[in-house]
Amino acid sequence: MKLEDLKKIREKAEKDVELRQKQARIRIVVGMGTSGIAAGAREVIRAFVDEIAKRNLSDVVVTQTGEKGLASQEPMIEVYEEGKPVVVYGNMDAEKTKRVVAEHIVNGSPVSEYVIEVR
């Protein structure tokens, strides 16, 4: 596998890029401050990244942010979706993340037992 292989991906992906550039449908923000990292934020992002790749969710992006100020609830994530309240999940891990992707990101119903805030 070489970097040149990216050209094939580019050709294949350019079709849906226009759509994606307008606006990602869902933006997931993971707290990656020191406490978030120590609590396992990397495994949470890794799980999102894997699920986005596996399910080909080209309208979902995951980004990181600094400390969220609630170290006891880390790893924390926020889900931003156009026209809907922001859903905040706490004490996340890779398994919970997979469930959030399946139930919330794909099927539109938040996993209430992991939600710590809606705003």
Binding site: M1, L3, E4, D5, L6, K7, I9, R10, K12, A13, E14, V17, R20, Q21, V49, D50, I52, A53, R55, N56, L57, S58, V61, V62
Partner: peptide
Amino acid sequence: AQLGDVPINHPEVIKFLGQY
């Protein structure tokens, strides 16, 4: 540079990078 307008966080690129 290889990707042009295709974002680096595109699902296909994620798969590629993981394997790479």
